[in-house]
Write a protein that binds this DNA or RNA. Structure first.
Lengths: 136, 136
DNA sequence: TTGCTTGCAAAGCATTTGCAAGAGC
DNA sequence: GCTCTTGCAAATGCTTTGCAAGCAA
């Protein structure tokens, strides 16, 4: 069983075949699917699954902290299940491909208290943009 | 005259009253407006300006590198005219407020060549998320 | 049984587009 | 005058919602 599914079961998440399928589709590394892509793949495993359910489920996984929402400059958000291994993203400006990367250093540490303006900072997203080898 | 307008004129950008108004609305620091907010403010200066023109103009300013597109997790993109002074963003997860910040160190330098996977990296966006003093 | 989840269809919102009329240079 | 820009209105694409029926616990 997928790691994601196992964690969700442990957390007492009410399981349905639709939710199982969405979790299966998302499992793995370097996965950055749009909601629509998740729906297409989920449909291959469970033909009756609806788009609305995919959106519901993705929203919940994000709320649970099991999936990260990635905003690129494209219209559709992407969903990244690799929430338990801190990482950042390398995005191709041309084709939209995303790769996970692991820069050195703690990005949070780079923001000194006097630059926080009283904010309680809990998260950092670091996105590198450029051209991938195929598009360069 | 605003700095932004001056730069655009120097670059030979064909000037119209609509474009002038959009540039005026965007000028300044800590400005992170949505296209709709730009339209509302532009309307106060030039009542006939259309939404489509605001979108056209914003898209061009981004293409010219004079304005930066900021993707948060909200639906609408935000536009930041502070393109000539490298900076990053501090976003409140609750109310959406954005502040410009200036972390120490060069974020680009943190990504070693062996983590670039052949990409030609040209840009870095660093976003800190948390709660602002008012929402905490 | 009880309440949470699903599917459908329609609505909502941000953004884009085609095209004729208008304005800069 | 020639070309680029504007405005309108319709279309598009992603996402959300309301509600009745279905299913997990």
């Amino acid at each position: 069983m997928s790691d994601l599914l196992m964690r969700l079961r442990e957390r007492g998440w009410r399981m349905t075949s639709q939710r199982r399928v969405v979790a299966q589709v998302l499992d793995g590394d370097h996965v950055h699917l749009t909601a629509d892509e998740v729906h297409i793949r989920a449909t291959r495993l469970l033909p009756e699954i609806s788009r609305a359910t995919v959106y519901n489920t993705l929203g919940e996984l994000v709320a649970l902290g099991e999936v990260i929402e990635v905003s690129t400059h494209d219209r559709a958000k992407r969903y990244d299940p690799n929430a338990h291994h801190p990482h950042h993203h390398l995005v191709c400006s041309a084709c939209g491909t995303i790769r996970d990367v692991h820069p050195t250093g703690d990005a949070l540490a780079g923001l000194p208290p006097e630059e926080r303006f009283g904010f309680t900072v809990s998260d950092v997203a670091l996105t590198y943009r450029g051209l991938c080898p195929d598009c360069a």
